[in-house]
Design a protein around this nucleic acid. Structure first.
Length: 952
RNA sequence: GCCCGAGUGGCGAAAUUGGUAUACGCGCGAGACUUAAAAUUUCGUGGUCGUAAGACCGUGUGGGUUCGAUUCCCACCUCGGGCACCA
């Protein structure tokens, strides 16, 4: 018996597979296909660490299974090789980026190949290859021709360290995504791609794809679709008006001032009217200077300045409101102006409180027999509307509050409350009620909290439905001076002094709790929906249904806004695709003619970006100065390059036809291969690469250049592999585990199996080289088992083994589909453990086992398969089917419970009837003592599982 | 603050139309083989009490629904991820 030696078999089979091209996609565009995709790597100088291959191996297992299921499989790889690290390396060393890229990708290729990932290497692409980026440039020109690529002066996020403009997506907490440096704002002419034109479709079409729910939510979040109203507030004595965007048109009667973003162009146009212009100008200058981080810090105190002398008119009620400039209004969202409704918006509330601006409640919370409320309104009974009030009564010396405990109803407690008579105001009404019900007379202070709460309920004693509109009144007692309280009142309820911090638990009604929390200041603005009050003709309507009507009433219109901004597509860098446009004095921006593509990167002496923010290309005058393709006059080339998201936005299309010189891919190939059936990648690319590529794809679809509107049918994610301390693996932390070392000592099969066994595929897991031994042991067991089976030459297997084997086939078949690799492996381990012990295991059955384990440990499976006389690769064999008859158990363990506690077990045949099971249970000796002297109330029977005797 | 996910032995983790909690693996303990070690292999391995049979407790915490809850509901705590003045 020869021992398992991974070194002897892994290289051998890798060469054989490559020679026979068994993993290459077949060029015949016929039959069922499977296109599996992983995110192509950036070939960094550090090489692969053990975290990189996790997604490759996962998708490899799926691809291998698909091949065995008879699919024509496309599982490609390439290099996303434009990018900063290579360029920075070039700056430091002077070595050309092409050379570095070549070296790094050669190393990556070698490493990946050593893991036997079944990529089709004949379709390898490289984004930095001119034959590839010719088409990246070509697609960009299509955007340009359709007016979706435009150059504009914008405020961009600028990283002072990398000297590069960043898209919003690349700014994390105000810092550069790559280097962590705090970004600055800079004004610059930049090429933009109009992704916002596709915002709605990018959002809506998520319904048509099978993505992880988190991916969909994150994309939706990022796109930030929000439906609302655009409404104009006219400025008095002026032709001008302020257009605001709001999702809460229902609160417009409560709009007590208007806010403009500091960058809003209207501010300048109002200059002549503004009396405090100096102050305003200063504020604006300050706001512009602030960097992203300090300006958007959530806990930052709000600031602003009033435009004195400017007044706007609330179109709902005609009231004059003040106009302010404040940086909590953002210029690039909505209209850059906000109608402030402090009573119903947290931010406006904070601002209004600080600057003492009026706060007007226009939405009353509505309690409709909800939680902690009296009975539901009864249909058919009359509804009596009543004005009422609650009193929050503070003790004269202690930190206690007065509340009522109702005597006729259990667990009923409330604030002191009562009706308001006609002509009476709420404060006097409550003073009257309080003295009647509690006897207290010394009211030091009594005021209206200005918080109205509505409720609907059924009043038992009166037999009628009530609609109560309650005011919240606060009364502070000066002393305990008290009159006698009427006997009748005392029979109804008992007044109790409750400590402040116990009050919320003491009160049972949701509306009382709400008023109490408003009093405490726990609720600033009431931001939920409710019933309109103080809103003229709209009073009594619900905030949900009234939005459209109110918008029309004030002459506004319903609109949809997005958080998504257009994509900054320019980079002032060398190592990227040159933007193929020339600027002609006469003709403006003119595309480089298609036949001149690719527009290659010229050789430069220095890769250093300039401090002025121009790319190193601008220094090469012989390249920059050119002729206009249109008029042949003098022209200059664009010196900006594309961001590295460009090449990755369409690479999956190129894989279908990677050598095509006439098109980015032929229609025929695209039609057969796309969409990608299954795309696995990192969550970190959800709002960047994934969204960008969906955008490009939709654009190409509109040009009828791709056959589907979505590029990827299904999207899953893998978790990170963390270093042993639970930290991220990185060269700088010095905790990187190199797969080369693992392959050398344990073998590629062990590494593959271990990575898949570590834990759930989509979760982060901690690497442990110590635990790897388990996977190696499993492989050795399989190996020994193979040797044993071959020498024994059994014709049949024992029944138990057959059952376990077919169960494993079922489990593995199903689990691979849901990326449950760890549980699939577990079932194979169980199977092997039993096969080891088994007296008889047939060659035929063992070969079935080899087939299901083959996607996980391809070398060992192939070696044993061939030794058993097979001439063709196991990876081209047909995926086994389990036999449903063979997985049926004859017996099962019947669990017998008494009062839901397991007291006994019995091995019984599966054909057992309910009656028989009950008999077995009752007569079981272990059970007798538990039910002795008790009455059996109930017997619960769960087929093939348990009997539960409920006895007392 | 808001949204999403998670919390189970010493460790990685299984198990959900509600039905034996801890499969599988690592580690650990004891035995076999061996001159010895490694490798391999057999048995054991949630906690407490008990000589034992066994009993009780146990899936982040506190409640609830149920004959029965890791699974469903409510409240809370902790960790991870995303968003963050988006009107």
């Amino acid at each position: 018996m020869k021992n398992y030696d991974h070194k002897k078999i892994e290289g051998k089979w890798q060469k054989e597979w490559e020679k026979k091209k068994i993993y290459n996609a077949q060029n015949k565009l016929k039959g069922k296909k499977f296109y599996g995709l992983i995110e192509f790597p950036y070939p960094s100088g550090d090489g692969l660490h053990v975290g990189h291959p996790r997604p490759y191996i996962g998708m490899d297992i799926i691809s291998r299974k698909r091949r065995m299921e008879g699919y024509n499989v496309l599982y490609p790889i390439g290099w996303d090789a434009f990018g900063l690290p290579t360029e920075n390396y070039a700056i430091k060393t002077g070595i050309a980026p092409e050379k570095v890229t070549k070296k790094n990708s050669d190393n990556f290729r070698r490493q990946i190949k050593s893991l036997a990932v079944s990529f089709d290497w004949s379709r390898e692409v490289n984004t930095t290859d001119p034959a590839y980026y010719k088409w990246t440039q070509w697609i960009f020109l299509q955007f340009f021709k359709k007016g979706l690529a435009y150059k504009t002066k914008t405020v961009i996020n600028w990283c002072p360290k990398d000297k590069i403009g960043l898209a919003n997506e690349e700014v994390i907490n105000g810092c550069c995504e790559r280097c962590g440096t705090l970004t600055e704002k800079r004004e610059k002419e930049q090429w933009m791609l109009a992704i916002t034109k596709y915002a709605d479709r990018l959002d809506k079409d998520l319904d048509t794809v099978d993505y992880l729910p988190q991916v969909k939510t994150q994309q939706r979040n990022w796109i930030g679709k929000s439906e609302g109203s655009e409404i104009e507030f006219k400025i008095t004595d002026s032709e001008l008006g302020i257009k605001v965007f709001t999702t809460r048109a229902d609160t417009i009667f409560g709009a007590t001032y208007v806010i403009l973003a500091p960058e809003h162009t209207l501010v300048e146009s109002l200059k002549s009217k503004v009396k405090n212009w100096d102050e305003v100008e200063k504020y604006i200058a300050l706001a512009k200077k602030k960097d992203e981080l300090t300006r958007t810090a959530a806990d930052k105190e709000k600031t602003g300045v009033e435009l004195k002398g400017v007044e706007a008119i609330n179109p709902a009620n005609g009231e004059k409101v003040s106009v302010w400039v404040a940086d909590y209004a953002l210029v690039n969202y909505g209209t850059g102006a906000v109608m402030a409704v402090p009573a119903h918006d947290e931010r406006d509330f904070a601002f209004a409180t600080k600057y003492k601006l009026p706060i007007k409640q226009v939405i009353a919370p509505m309690f409709e027999s909800g939680e902690g409320h009296p009975d539901k309104p009864v249909a058919g009974k009359p509804v009596i509307e009543r004005d009422v009030a609650y009193a929050i009564i503070k003790h004269w010396s202690e930190d206690k509050y007065l509340a009522l405990k109702w005597k006729q109803v259990d667990h009923w407690t409330s604030l002191v409350m009562g009706g308001i008579d006609t002509g009476e105001d709420a404060v006097s009404a409550m003073k009257r009620e309080v003295s009647e019900e509690t006897g207290f007379t010394d009211f030091k202070k009594a005021y209206d909290l200005q918080f109205e709460v509505h409720s609907k309920f059924y009043q038992h004693q009166k037999g009628e439905n009530r609609y109560a509109k309650a005011q919240t009144i606060v009364i502070e007692l000066g002393s305990g001076a008290q009159n006698n309280v009427d006997e009748e009142e005392l029979k109804k309820h008992e007044p109790l002094w409750i400590e402040k911090n116990k009050m919320e638990d003491f009160l049972v009604h949701g509306n009382h709790k709400l008023s109490w929390n408003k009093y405490l200041g726990k609720i600033g603005a009431y931001t939920e929906g409710g019933v309109l009050i103080n809103s003229g003709q709209f009073n009594g309507l619900s905030s949900q249904e009234v939005k459209k009507n109110i918008t029309e009433f004030v002459g506004g219109k319903m609109v949809t806004k997005f958080k998504l901004r257009d994509w900054v597509f320019s980079r002032q860098r060398y190592w990227g695709e040159p933007i193929p446009l020339v600027n002609c004095e006469k003709c403006g921006w003119v595309p480089v003619p298609e036949k001149e593509l690719p527009l290659k990167l010229p050789k430069v002496k220095s890769y250093q970006p300039t401090d002025t923010g121009e790319s190193p290309l601008s220094a090469i005058t012989s390249w920059v100065n050119t002729k206009c393709p249109k008029c042949k006059g003098k022209a200059k080339r664009e010196t900006d390059t594309m961001p590295n998201w460009a090449g990755s936005s369409w690479y999956y299309l190129r894989y279908t036809d990677p050598k095509n010189k006439k098109e980015f891919a032929s229609k025929k190939n695209l039609k057969y291969w796309t969409p990608v059936d299954w795309y696995n990648g990192g969550m970190e690319h959800t709002t960047l690469h994934l969204l960008y590529s969906r955008f490009w794809h939709k654009f190409l679809y509109d040009l009828k250049l791709v056959p589907t509107s979505e590029p990827y049918k299904k999207r899953t994610s893998h978790g990170l592999i963390l270093a042993e301390g639970g930290e991220k693996m990185s060269k700088s932390r010095g905790n990187v585990v190199n797969p080369d070392d693992i392959v050398k000592t344990y073998g590629a099969d062990t590494l593959r199996l271990y990575e898949m066994f570590l834990g759930p595929f989509d979760q982060a897991v901690v690497w442990s080289t110590e635990s790897m031994i388990g996977s190696r042991r499993f492989i050795e067991k399989v190996w020994r088992l193979g040797e044993k089976v071959m020498s024994a030459k059994a014709k049949t297997s024992s029944k138990e083994i057959e059952r376990l084997l077919h169960k494993a086939i079922k489990k593995v078949t199903e689990d691979i589909e849901i990326m449950g690799f760890n549980t699939a492996i577990s079932s194979m381990m169980i199977c092997v453990n039993e096969m080891e012990k088994a007296e008889s295991l047939s060659v035929k059955d063992f070969k079935l086992f080899l087939q299901i384990v083959a996607p996980f440990i391809p070398h060992v499976a192939e070696e044993l398969w061939r030794e058993m006389g097979e001439k063709k690769s196991i990876h081209l064999s047909k995926w086994p089917k389990y036999d449903p008859k063979k997985i049926v158990d004859d017996t099962f363990t019947l669990v017998i419970q008494v009062n839901s506690k397991v007291r006994a077990e019995a091995t019984v045949p599966v054909s057992l009837s309910e009656k028989e099971a009950e008999e077995i249970a009752k007569n079981h000796p272990m059970i007798q003592s538990w039910i002795a002297g008790k009455t059996i109330r109930k017997i619960i029977y769960v087929k093939n599982k348990l009997v539960n005797i409920v006895a007392a």
